[in-house]
Amino acid sequence: MTDKKNQVSRRQFLNYTLTGVGGFMGAAMIAPMVGFAVDPLLKGEKETDFVYVMDVDEITNEPQRKTFSTDQVDGWYESQAEHTAWIFRTEEDEILALSPVCTHLGCVVDWNSNEEYPDQFYCPCHDGRYNKLGENLPNTPPTEPLHAYEYRIEDGKLLLGKAKSRKGA
């Protein structure tokens, strides 16, 4: 004699089976989406890459515009990003590499390009002005100094990293 209390009915068996198969299929569809969203977060940020720009003995007291490229990764897309720096030696013989991006609205500044404001970094978009050290001048639109690139010197070569804010410089 069979005990009817412990038996699973045909309806319960089909219900359990279809629920299990449906759950497995749903998980199989969602897992790649979760992996796609979470993977960039798990990669973490690598150390700042320093890129060769010029030889140290080429650096003068007059700002020189130098262009260099860095590797850029957006998710899974890898490309080359082009950057520009104004590089020179200060009166204290320190090397300074300034970003040409105006801190007011992100326009590009140029060195000694305006006859009215000689020996200054000038932003033609909104009359932003900076002195030779990249410090914003009073009563002009920029609210902070030009950002400066991190740098290293190795074997007589100047390597630049990321541009950092110099608030209060």
Rank of each mutant, 00 (worst) to 15 (best):
E92V: 00
W86P: 05
Y130A: 01
H104A: 10
H126E: 03
S165D: 11
S69V: 12
M33Q: 15
Y52R: 14
D49A: 13
P142Y: 06
L137T: 11
D155V: 03
Y52T: 13
M54S: 11
D155W: 07
H147E: 09
F36E: 09
L160K: 09
I95S: 03
D74I: 15
V101L: 06
D55A: 12
G75H: 09
F121H: 05
E92D: 15
Q80L: 14
P145D: 07
T143L: 13
N112H: 10
V108Y: 12
E58G: 11
F50D: 07
V53E: 10
K162L: 11
D74C: 12
T48H: 02
T90L: 05
C107H: 01
T140Y: 08
L133K: 15
E94T: 04
P124F: 05
Q64C: 08
A85D: 08
P40V: 08
E47Q: 13
N112W: 07
G75L: 06
E91S: 13
P124V: 01
H126P: 07
K162S: 14
L146T: 04
S79Q: 10
C123V: 08
A163D: 08
P100F: 06
F36Q: 11
N114G: 01
D74L: 14
V108Q: 13
L137F: 09
C125Y: 05
C125T: 02
E94V: 03
N114K: 07
I95K: 02
E82W: 10
K66L: 12
Y122H: 14
T140L: 08
Q120S: 11
A31L: 12
Q80P: 06
Y151H: 10
Q72D: 12
E91K: 13
E45L: 08
L137P: 10
E91D: 15
L98P: 05
L159Y: 15
D127M: 02
E115M: 08
Y151R: 00
D49H: 14
V51H: 13
P141H: 04
R152W: 09
C107M: 03
P118L: 00
D39F: 14
S113P: 11
P145L: 05
K46G: 15
G156I: 01
W111I: 09
L137V: 14
Y149W: 03
L41Q: 09
I59R: 07
G35V: 10
L105W: 03
D55R: 14
D127T: 02
R129I: 03
M33N: 14
G106E: 03
Y149F: 08
V51P: 10
F121K: 03
H147V: 00
N136M: 06
C102A: 03
L146S: 00
L160W: 08
L98A: 09
D49N: 13
G35Y: 14
L96N: 02
R129H: 07
H83F: 10
L160S: 06
H83L: 05
